[in-house]
Design a protein around this nucleic acid. Structure first.
Lengths: 191, 191
DNA sequence: CTTGACGTTCAAGACACCTTGAACTACGTA
DNA sequence: TACGTAGTTCAAGGTGTCTTGAACGTCAAG
């Protein structure tokens, strides 16, 4: 069930040697979430590093910062780009392409929820409704239960939309509001 | 990315021959969601069938209704049981054990969110906070970004709790409210 | 004690997905 | 044209997870 929380796969350790310790921690943390959310762990790691560094990195830089293979770096960046999670930018001269992170967290999450979850929920709703129709001649109890499932799908659908809408609305606001606490809690350096 | 939406893998078709068509549709739909949510598709199918049938079924019945192997049926039911998603009941005589579905949808979802998502979010929050601490001597911009990530984790955490709390609160209520629409929309048999 | 229905376990195999790295394209420079 | 760097592609191999089915309890009836 619970996926490993591998912070230090030995090869990574070697490869990500040039990561600051906090960078390693944070990128792993993000990678874990992302991986859990059914994307690849490295999608999260790459985005997180770009986000933290706050500057554009080339593929080769990403490669040896995170210990990715050439192929992986290419693929990961391309995918992140098509999802609008990172941007490809070209420095003046003829420097190689570099990538920088989209920083509007809520925008990203909103997009994912819309494109992936919502689409799934839609399909399911459709099928459940179809099932209800087919069950029309059947026993009412069955129909009632099918209806409840449909209703649940609707509810989840709504919840997702609400979350995105709300979160986007006060995106910066919420973050700013939560921040003080987050910081305060941490001020006391834990006996 | 998008997992296949296999409604009719040929073997299933043969095996689940004794499923009513709407049962097949609904169980597949639920199975898909569940599978997408990182459980096994069959967890969803088994629960859904028990839920729709509204009666207790034995393992062997589940087996040939859904085309499961003996081992799979045993494993799936045991897991669902430990998660409190189905109950094992014994009929009067010495009949074999049978399983019936937990019907409080929100209770189930709440439990999953709490036990799985929340636990993940916790770990991530912890790691991010740790990272923030380590980055204390670093550039303020990095610390600011780490803080934003932490804040996001907090936000998601809160959203999950809110969803569960809200949903549970008006669980039956919401369902009852949504139902009329769900049914009305479907009344018109689609030209 | 034997038989049969019911369940469980677990090693082996099937399977899906991820990663790798070599071959290849593109493009600018000497 | 030859060469070097950047980046892409894709077949081959690796990894972890799911499923299967045979072997093995258990229990009650014959």
């Amino acid at each position: 069930m619970t996926r490993g929380y591998m912070i230090d796969r030995d090869d990574d350790e070697a490869a990500s040697g040039r990561l600051e310790p906090w960078e390693a921690l944070a990128t792993e943390a993000v990678g874990t979430v992302i991986g859990f959310w059914n994307f690849k762990r490295n999608h999260g790691r790459v985005w997180a590093l770009l986000y933290l560094r706050d500057c554009a990195l080339s593929q080769s830089e990403l490669q040896d910062a995170l210990g990715l293979s050439k192929g992986a770096a290419s693929m990961i960046t391309r995918e992140l780009e098509t999802w609008g999670v990172i941007r490809r930018v070209r420095a003046p001269g003829d420097a190689p392409w570099r990538f920088e992170a989209e920083t509007d967290l809520m925008r990203m999450i909103g997009r994912v929820l819309r494109e992936r979850e919502a689409e799934l929920v839609q399909r399911v709703r459709h099928d459940l409704e179809e099932a209800e129709r087919l069950a029309r001649p059947g026993p009412p109890e069955v129909r009632r239960r099918l209806a409840r499932l449909s209703a649940l799908a609707l509810l989840v659908d709504g919840a997702l939309r609400t979350f995105v809408a709300t979160a986007r609305f006060d995106a910066s606001g919420v973050v700013r509001v939560l921040l003080p606490n987050a910081i305060r809690d941490r001020k006391r350096p834990r006996a």
